[in-house]
Design a binder for these strands. Structure first.
Lengths: 247, 247
DNA sequence: CGTAGTATTGAAACGGATCAATATCTGTGG
DNA sequence: CCACAGATATTGATCCGTTTCAATACTACG
């Protein structure tokens, strides 16, 4: 229901949520459609240099323009990365779900600020150690290459979304994106929206008010219902697809 | 002056324009600020499986939704990748300058169409051969990882550009981007714009008319001069930076 | 030198941003 | 457990800039 729902404090300490990477295969990688899963050996290699950390909701994992000591792999919870622009606006660049990697640097500094939206569990890996490992192990590196390639496509999709001029269409595409990202654990047409309306606005390049009006319009037209602020339920799939796909 | 200017037909056949990759180091890569240049050995490895091809202006290198047999490295000229949306609009996703890699696939098919804007020289590499090489050679793969990481940041920048609501600001950011990309061979403040206004519009998510009005406004305010349709000259650097940087 | 594609300029309309007021939710302390 | 306060979200009215439609000008290329 609310953000707190995602915390799940009873999680055992070591049994689950080991590091993995979510990505599409790079250039099909020989084996067509192969699941982009790490082998047991690769997982072990990462675990050897990784530290497991739990962060509460709202905590800042790292701040932009600080030394990029670590990279992170999310295993549980949802986070966001953002950048505060000099205009005062906040630009949300990504929402991070389990198996997402984050912490890419430029000139040794983080480019964005990363903040937990829900309580989250992360694997923290020292950047230099990871780079050394990747340079030794081509297969493991290939998983990262696949991952980054996938992120590149996602970023390009995001450009299309932001480029749409109609607010309703953008929100529809956003909901669809979330549906794809988190489909495994949801039944039927219920989609969790752990982030605030304000975060969605900053992500889609719209004002908070426009998001509100767009969701209201989707609800009024009977296309999507919002049982509460953190849940969306697609009622009219045909109309929804027409909105989200007809770019 | 015109697109034809870029052709340079007297180019010798083999002496110059060997494959290279333009990218920022991934996570600083140990050696801070190191130039992302291929070693002689890596260049040789690529050359062994590469075929050099010359394409005239306007020719389509590959079409979206066709089998992604090759990936390409541009060595000379300018190309664009785009996608025709069902709305009839054309979405230009990238302009490709020398050292850019293109031809990434999804499910074995090209995602965009690639077309030459000026006459261009490319290296064509069989996808499977490249993947096999990358899986063997971690160092070479690392160059590609750096490259893709850099592209990811560029794509995110593009999202910011497209997210701006003012046309003049977007055009200013676009010109600045071109300035950064091609600075090596230009003196002073002259920036080549090999692509058409229409391409720029499709890239920035604006209408052709808005581009025209934006360039007119930049010229009227004395910030940028456009001696002809394929050239921009920054006159007032301070004002220009204020526009392009103040996101 | 003419034609087709490309670019510029004008007028009107649509849609999101902004400002402002109100409503709802969340988490805290009484 | 309830009440309160601050944050978050909704709704309304107006303004501004881009889109669109339309007419004209320019450029490139045969």
């Amino acid at each position: 229901m609310t953000a707190a729902k995602h915390s799940d404090r009873k999680t055992p300490e070591l049994t689950q949520a080991e590091p993995g990477l979510r990505a599409a295969p790079f250039l099909e990688a020989g084996s067509i459609g192969a699941a982009p899963v790490l082998t047991e050996r690769q997982r072990q290699q990462l675990l050897e240099i990784a530290t497991r950390v739990r962060v509460p909701a709202r905590s800042v994992v790292y701040r932009e323009q600080t030394a990029a000591t670590w990279i992170f792999i999310n295993t549980e919870g949802v986070l966001k990365t953002f950048k505060d622009l000099r205009s005062g606006r906040r630009w949300v660049t990504a929402f991070l779900f389990p198996k997402d990697v984050f912490g890419l640097a430029k000139n040794g500094l983080y480019v964005r600020t990363a903040q937990a939206i829900t309580p989250a569990t992360l694997y923290r890996i020292e950047s230099h150690a990871l780079i050394a490992l990747l340079r030794r192990d081509a297969e493991l590196q290939f998983q990262f290459l696949s991952k980054v390639t996938h992120e590149l496509r996602e970023a390009q999709r995001q450009t299309i979304v932001v480029g749409r001029r109609d607010a309703v269409g953008r929100v529809a595409m956003f909901i669809q994106q979330l549906e794809c990202t988190c489909c495994d654990r949801h039944n039927a047409r219920d989609i969790e929206l752990p982030m605030s309306r304000s975060d969605i606005a900053s992500y889609l390049g719209l004002s908070l008010e426009s998001i509100s009006r767009a969701t209201a319009k989707l609800q009024r037209r009977g296309i999507v219902a919002f049982p509460n602020r953190h849940l969306a339920r697609i009622l009219d799939r045909a109309q929804f697809d027409r909105l989200s796909k007809a770019i």
